[in-house]
Design a protein around this nucleic acid. Structure first.
Lengths: 154, 154
DNA sequence: AGTAAATAGTCAGCGCACTGATTATTTCTG
DNA sequence: CAGAAATAATCAGTGCGCTGACTATTTACT
């Protein structure tokens, strides 16, 4: 007894939303390049030469996940990984011609897909929708790294 | 050149939203039971004796994924799997006492977590938020199984 | 200069999520 | 009633996402 209505649970809805997006992406954008992979390509278009960790930060992926995504992109020849001569820990990343071409090609389709995805909402609702999601996500991420950096006492 | 602003991409925001939720769940609800697992328990509270496929449909998981989730829950003794005597293909699922207890215990924490998750929004915004997500997710899912079942021509 | 702390990346392990192929059972149909 | 179609579940394969442990390099502090 006393079960809960999942349709009022933002987490459950968030999962369903992402699944819906995944489905649409696969049919309307690409079956090879995934949405996180596109996000990485997109970041490197404006900021070539970033290191792996920073790219992860830009697109919201932790160090392990970004490593896998990048390794797949690199294996397919969409980006290059070079040791930073200034700092031997880092790898500097930049798109290959093929990577840049792929990004250009997908950009149009992504825009079309976003339109279809948001089509059930009016223009005004779409704006509100994006704003609300962003505020909730930002706030929750804020809880992770406390603004108050612990004071090293003593 | 010509990179895109990901903050205007609903898919990217959906992913970040889910990550934020995952983080909050882990810290405020449970490190053992995940959100999809809770959804399964919750479904079986009101509808004991469902088969695997139907549970998957209720919580929005495909046949493969629901199989794994259920196998984990069953391995931990939170639910029982019995062959349907009426239909030898099906497994009937119902919570064990431990499973029901776990569901009860987590329900309170989930409610608290939802509050924190939605806290950055006003009460009115929260209502809008849930409504908008649901409409977008429902619409995209609708695209999957076309209302018009293809006519077998000839 | 020499050790300690911080940082970048890798690796192992777990869990969610999907597709396509396979197996077992049931149902439909001729 | 026999063969075909449908259905429930499993399995293999790929990819995202996280944590905790580890390695290598750099930076900071005596």
């Amino acid at each position: 007894m006393a079960a809960v209505d999942l349709t009022s649970h933002p987490g459950h809805l968030a999962r369903r939303l992402q699944q819906a997006h995944y489905l649409l992406w696969n049919t309307m954008v690409s079956e090879e390049i995934t949405s996180p992979q596109f996000a990485v390509l997109n970041t490197l278009v404006t900021e070539p030469g970033l290191d792996q960790r920073t790219v992860g930060e830009r697109v919201g992926l932790d160090r392990s996940t970004i490593a896998e995504v990048i390794s797949r992109l690199s294996r397919r020849g969409l980006l290059d990984k070079v040791r930073d001569p200034q700092d031997g820990r880092r790898f500097l990343l930049r798109l290959t011609d093929d990577g840049a071409r792929t990004h250009r090609r997908l950009t149009v389709r992504v825009a079309r897909m976003n339109q279809v995805f948001l089509a059930p909402l009016s223009a005004a609702e779409q704006t509100v929708f994006l704003d609300l999601i962003q505020r909730v996500a930002d706030a929750a991420e804020g809880l992770r790294n406390p603004a108050e950096p612990l004071v090293t006492r003593s």
